[in-house]
Design a protein around this nucleic acid. Structure first.
Lengths: 204, 204
DNA sequence: GCAGTGTGCTTGCAAAAGTTAGCAGTGCGT
DNA sequence: ACGCACTGCTAACTTTTGCAAGCACACTGC
């Protein structure tokens, strides 16, 4: 193959590996791939198979599809957000509430990015105003008192769920950041043991 | 390779080719693939790369993802999730961090639903099960008063999710900027770049 | 200084993917 | 009968992927 069509894969992989604070050897070991090969991939000298990409994605705790896209196996084509909206709305695995939550977040992100693209000075919390706007129409105040009270209670419960979810996300994020460091040390210990054993075998 | 993990690909390919009323040679020529290789693929003797699958899909005028699924590159069992994930990942309007956040939330929703579907009592979290149990009867509407209150609470929680998560994203963004290790890695990047340039020269 | 450990990379090689040249069989026209 | 075009496949070969062994360099502790 004269020129490898590997797109941005190598750079992306290296970036993700660095974000995870893993050495080349650590990621290679975690993915079950040889470290020279991983080095070659990162430098764009090789185009790995989808199987290898799956293994790497798993070790990096990112979705394989992410790497497929970077490698040019899956196409990046959505510009209007229609597919994301459609996919979310037609997904049978999540309920309506969750769909709405995801859509709100998705739209917030899009707005945030659009604002950034416009180079408009972004307020401290750009997503906040849309949320409040959405919350008020949901109220529909003129209804019966009981109806209003029930709705307020429902909102309170939803807020509690959101707190739990956000907490989960934050905790997970921290775990992801904390684990690599620990794993790194732990892996070093393991590698020391492995290496000594390996050295013994070679010596023998 | 002792046993090729090619799933149903060969049979599926042959079926599609026959449906299109193409001979093996015609399809191979249209796809830019050698006809003996196509024969081997159809007989399950070879596992083609994603590039070859793309070429074949294009010649057959079907989506490459269809063949990826048949080849086991994409998981069909996870089909609904795949569409959402793929849509999110291929969306050009949001960046990588946002994509990962959305995916994490999506996954936690799915997990939440799967756990609720399994109705597995979680001993580790005694507070959580009662809340979920309450959310479920709400849908079934056994008790009108309580069910209504719980529904309203759920809505409020959902509304707060976006705010909490957006806050998380902002916090994470700040954390990423604050991490000194990032600078360290940046320096490593420079070193690697220098080294790679040297290597490239040697390679050329 | 040294030894030990970690890092990323080079080199040679095996295995697998993928191609080229050609074979055997089938159907059709003369 | 023959020749021709088409079919799917075999076998040898080429190219690419992916790995094992090892190198050079950096860092740390003694």
């Amino acid at each position: 193959m004269g020129t490898l069509n590997v797109g941005n894969l190598g750079e992306y992989l290296r970036e993700q590996r660095r974000n995870a604070q893993l050495s080349l050897r650590q990621l290679a070991d975690a993915a079950g791939v040889s470290n020279p090969y991983l080095s070659q991939i990162e430098r764009g000298l090789r185009k790995p198979s989808a199987d290898i990409l799956q293994q790497l994605a798993k070790a990096l705790r990112i979705s394989a599809e992410t790497l497929y896209v970077q490698a040019g196996i899956l196409d990046e084509r959505d510009r209007d957000g229609i597919e994301v909206r459609t996919a979310i709305l037609t997904d049978a695995a999540i309920n309506e509430k969750q769909k709405q939550v995801l859509l709100q977040i998705y739209e917030s992100f899009r707005r945030e990015n659009a604002a950034a693209a416009d180079a408009v000075p972004v307020p401290a919390r750009p997503p906040a105003p849309p949320r409040r706007t959405a919350a008020r129409p949901a109220g529909q105040g003129p209804g019966a008192g009981r109806a209003g009270q029930k709705k307020a209670a429902a909102k309170k419960a939803a807020a509690k769920v959101a707190d739990a979810v956000a907490e989960t996300v934050v905790a997970r994020s921290r775990a992801l950041k904390a684990i690599p460091a620990r794993e790194k040390q732990h892996n070093q210990d393991e590698r020391v043991i492995k290496r000594r054993e390996g050295d013994d075998v070679v010596g023998a």
